[in-house]
Design a protein around this nucleic acid. Structure first.
Lengths: 156, 156
DNA sequence: CATTTCGTTCAATATATTCTGAACATTCTG
DNA sequence: CAGAATGTTCAGAATATATTGAACGAAATG
């Protein structure tokens, strides 16, 4: 589909992904930044990010720190270049999956903790919390399967 | 573990789940309300929810509406009783999984939409967005597996 | 039928989050 | 070494979200 205005497609993608990120508990500008890196590929300079996304350099600094912490973005430098450059981390999507799995595991642990503290006579709560635990186990297993399948997909 | 203060265990569980809900893009009080229903089992009166959770009735109204919309809670009435009662929906955990899957599908659609709009010469972006799409497909499949497995678990 | 109970809605408040500009330390440049 | 460029931090502004009290309509009560 060669409509000509490919810049618009890029901008739309970046904005959409900003909203998706927001729906997944991540600041919108971090999502936009990540989307930009995915779309453009390669390493983008710190200053260029601020300019293209029209956000302050402070915001770039915070966003890239967040994305680095989550293993989604990698900071690289170049000989002769003073600025920091950023690119999508090699295993970014796997990291995204791993982060989801970790959140589920944390929730699972909370339920398990309560189950352990439950007095013996609380049969009803015990039964219901066990089902709750099963829910988190199911979702955790599903994510693990997704992780392995995604790994396979890349190789093929 | 019969420590005696089982009320404390219940309160802790409710508060913990409030935080878990918050981490999953749901208002804290909705999470607490749901946790209370899971823990106690059976149907709880509107007024009792406000009192036990120490929140306003307006907040109960908003929370139960949200939880009803997501299929997590069911409103029931009782002959002779004027208040509404609320209980965990029969398939609440399945609904929770379905909601996750729907969110993933929505994100997937956004990426797919961009892929469709991409100009032919944009080979690089096409390649990278395809990988992105694969990520959402993997997570979607994982959730579907979780859904079917969770169904199985209940039957056994 | 006046009064109470019940649940919802709405505007305002409270709270949490995100973003920014300014100040800063560090490193490079000429 | 003076000045510019770079990235970070922090306090405050801007924004978004959640919670509340008050007003309201509907339904039951006595």
């Amino acid at each position: 589909m060669t409509t000509g205005n490919d810049k618009q497609v890029r901008t739309d993608f970046i904005e959409r992904m900003g909203l998706v990120a927001q729906a997944e508990n991540m600041p919108r500008s971090a999502g936009r930044l990540f989307a930009l890196l995915v779309y453009d590929g390669g390493a983008v300079a710190f200053g260029a990010l601020a300019e293209m996304l029209q956000i302050s350099r402070a915001s770039v600094s915070n966003s890239v720190r967040l994305l680095e912490e989550r293993g989604l973005v990698k900071r690289v430098t170049r000989p002769g270049e003073r600025q920091d450059f950023f690119e999508v981390a090699p295993n970014a999507f796997a990291a995204l999956l791993a982060a989801s799995a970790a959140r589920v595991a944390a929730a699972r642990t909370e339920v398990a903790k309560t189950l352990g503290e439950l007095p013996d006579e609380a049969q009803g709560p015990h039964e219901r919390l066990t089902e709750y635990l099963g829910f988190y186990e199911a979702i955790g297993e599903g994510l693990n399967i997704a992780i392995s399948r995604f790994g396979d997909r890349k190789k093929s």
